[in-house]
Each structure stands twice: as C-alpha cells, then as structure tokens.
Design a protein around this nucleic acid. Structure first.
Lengths: 156, 156
DNA sequence: ATAAACCGTTGACATTTTCAACTATCCGTA
DNA sequence: TACGGATAGTTGAAAATGTCAACGGTTTAT
C-alpha cells in the first residue's frame, strides 16, 4: 500500500461503523466526542501541569463565586473525596486557597490565588485552542448552537 | 427547613455555579451531560446485566457490519485489551460469537447471536427511555439537532 | 438539649485505563 | 520465495479513577 492511500484507507476503516444504529445514540455520541476532546485538552494542559480536572476546579475557584468543596463536587459530578485531593494538590502548588465558610464553619470555600489566576489565564488559551481543534468540523454558529443545546439539556 | 422548600434550595445550590465561565466550555458541558446520562443508562441496563460498554459492543455486533475487535476498539475509543474482556464476557453469556476474519485470519469479527439479538431488542427500549429522560429538557427537534451537530463534529 | 443531617477528610476497595510484551498472521519488497 | 516490518488479538501488570463507609466537627430542626 502506498503512503498516499494509507490515510484514506485508515479513515475509511474508522468510518466503517458509522452506519451502525449506535450512531443515533446520544450517550455514545457524547462519549465519543468527549473522548477525543479530552485527549486534546489534557495534551494542551500538560504544559501547565494541569489536567482537565484540576483545570476545571481552578476555573471555578477563580470565578468569584467562592464555591465550597461540596458545591464543586456536585457541579463537577465528582465524589467529595476526589475534590479533597484535587484541592490539596492545587493548594500545595499555591494556586488556590481554602477558607472557612462564612456562615457554615463546616464548609470550606476554594478561591484562586493571584498565582492561580495568572496560570489559569495562560491555560485557558491553550484549552480554547484544544476545544477549537476538537470542534473543527463545526462552523462558528454551529458551535454556539451546540453549546446552547447542551446547556439547555443540563439546566432546562 | 420544610420538606417543600428543600428541593428548591437543593436545585438552587446546584445551579449556583452555572454563571461560572466553565459553562461555556464544550468539554465540560459534554462531560457533565454524559455523566448524568451515563448513570441513567447504566441503571436502565442493569436489569439486563449489561453496562454501557457491553451494550455498545452488543449493538455493533448486531449491526450486520461484522466489526473486528480492532474496529470496535477504534470506534468505541477503547484499548484493544478492553474489547477482549468485554467480548469474553458477552461470548461466555452466549450473546455474541467470535469468528475468524475472512480475509485476515488474525482478525476476529464479533457478531451477535440470536439470543444476543433478542436481549438487545429489550435493552434498547430501556436505553432509549433512559436517553429520553436525560434529554428531557430538550424538545424533539432539538434532540435531532443536537445529535446532528455531534455527528458532524465527529465525522465532518 | 438532643437527635438527625451535613461538610470535609481519610482510607479501603473496585473498576477502568494504560502499556508493554508475546504469538500468529499479513504485507511489501528483495 | 523468503525475509522484515507492521498489525490483530491476548495476557498481565501498573497507574489512575471511581465508589463507599466511617469519623470528628458543625449545623439545623424539634
């Protein structure tokens, strides 16, 4: 096989199954697009020693909303114990800080430090480039549309 | 707090962070919708002793496309070794059968048995109900639109 | 005042992911 | 034809993630 036809045949092999009925399953489509996007995202974030997980915690910590760890767990669909280790690591690196909840002393709010905020600004650029790459098949307005639909499905 | 207001407050707590900029991140939206959908899916499939993974393998095995294990791995974004155990289990239960590839004797195609096909028919109903539930916030045409966008992003 | 519920934390356990071998087979080329 | 490199499936181990129960300190409702 020549080098020229190899790419096409590979793509054809990858596309062979797209006529299967699973292609109409939303769960599968979400999983697959997320899988490819996740690889690109983590690759882009590796430069900053972040993963998708720690990156999302950092965004929320930097949002000004002062989320508690419980709120982070709920919002990110993670177990509270997973938030503990994520925040532990970010705190050790001086990117976020824990603070006792104002009304509820059981709760701890997580906020980004200045250093965390600066790192996030750079990481966000890389992440946005990765997102653009994983959605390269869509036009600008289609991306807007997709995000709107996803948001509506999540918070009707 | 009364029982009546509890629900509303819980929802409000869950929604507190939706103004954070991460809500505009496609990766996050995909991950979150997939997380909630996955729970519902697996719950619906548990009745048939299937999980999302084995369910998707069974669908593809039943598609008539006679996928090889390698093609399953590529299409499902899984490691080939994961396909081995998935097919092992389905084969042990008599739901799919392995057959040597016609042209390539290294390859093994995976096809559903009659029993697998029957189980799939029932499981698919449950899965579709689960999907409908996880996309309950969207109208019919919006679901069609969402799936079309996801497909276009994956296979432009 | 007390009991129940909740937050963060720890640690154990299960599941999933990732990777490096290995055999058997295929393919291109000499 | 035979050789060398690539590929399919398999095995098994290691790393990463997910799940869950328990505990101290705190809040809330009664």
């Amino acid at each position: 096989m020549t080098v020229e036809t190899q790419g096409a045949d590979q793509a054809a092999a990858g596309d062979k199954l797209i006529t299967a009925p699973i292609t109409n399953d939303a769960g599968f489509l979400l999983a697959k697009l997320r899988a490819t996007g996740s690889v690109l995202n983590n690759k882009a974030l590796a430069e900053f020693d972040l993963k998708e997980r720690s990156y999302s915690v950092l965004i929320l910590a930097n949002s000004g909303l002062e989320p508690t760890q419980r709120e982070l767990a709920d919002f990110l669909s993670l177990d509270p114990s997973q938030i503990v280790s994520l925040v532990d690591e970010l705190e050790k690196r001086g990117l976020v800080a824990r603070a006792a909840g104002k009304q509820d002393r059981r709760a701890k709010t997580v906020t980004a430090t200045a250093k965390g905020s600066r790192l996030l600004a750079e990481a966000a650029e890389a992440a946005h480039r990765a997102e653009a790459e994983s959605l390269a098949g869509l036009a600008e307005d289609e991306i807007v549309q997709l995000k709107a639909l996803l948001r509506k499905a999540l918070w009707p």
